[in-house]
């Protein structure tokens, strides 16, 4: 550990606890991303870069048709440009983006503030659990589907 990193670690340890729902960095759950480009188009300061390509899946049945799939190649958020508005997270139709309360690490080079998909995925571990549902609320749609599939009958 360099003295610089030691200082950073000390600062971090001394930092007062940030509220759980703070806006720190944005985490990416790639499995949910369909490369629809909505976040990149909604971002007011153009800080999300997405590259993808098309792949054709063979038909699943004999008379079926081949399916075209969009495959993510690059997903990067430039935290030097990001202004923490959260519009990308709100706009994502498939819940692929999440706020994490962790702050992007300080760097000496602004280029290092561009977090590529591996880093964005790593932030997922720091995303807090969603707030609990109201006790009287119906279970989430996903839960209902799962219950129906595995339920009795």
């Amino acid at each position: 550990m360099t003295p610089y990193e030691q200082g950073l670690a000390a600062l971090r340890a001394a930092q007062y606890p940030v509220p759980v729902r703070s806006r720190g960095v944005i985490a990416l759950l790639e499995e949910n991303c369909t490369v629809c480009m909505v976040c990149a188009r909604e971002c007011p300061d153009w800080c999300i870069e997405i590259d993808s390509h098309k792949e054709t899946l063979p038909p699943r049945t004999e008379r079926g048709r081949p399916r075209v799939l969009h495959v993510l190649d690059r997903f990067a958020i430039d935290f030097a440009l990001c202004m923490w508005c959260g519009i990308c997270i709100e706009a994502c139709p498939f819940d692929a983006l999440f706020w994490s309360p962790e702050l992007p690490p300080a760097t000496r080079d602004p280029a290092e503030l561009v977090h590529e998909r591996a880093e964005l995925r790593a932030w997922l571990a720091t995303v807090p659990a969603p707030p609990a549902l109201d006790p009287a609320a119906a279970p989430a749609k996903e839960q209902q589907d799962a219950d129906r599939r595995s339920g009795p009958g």
Partner: peptide, 10 residues
Amino acid sequence: WPGAKEPGES
């Protein structure tokens, strides 16, 4: 503009 790309484009 990063949004000029369509899904499936780089």
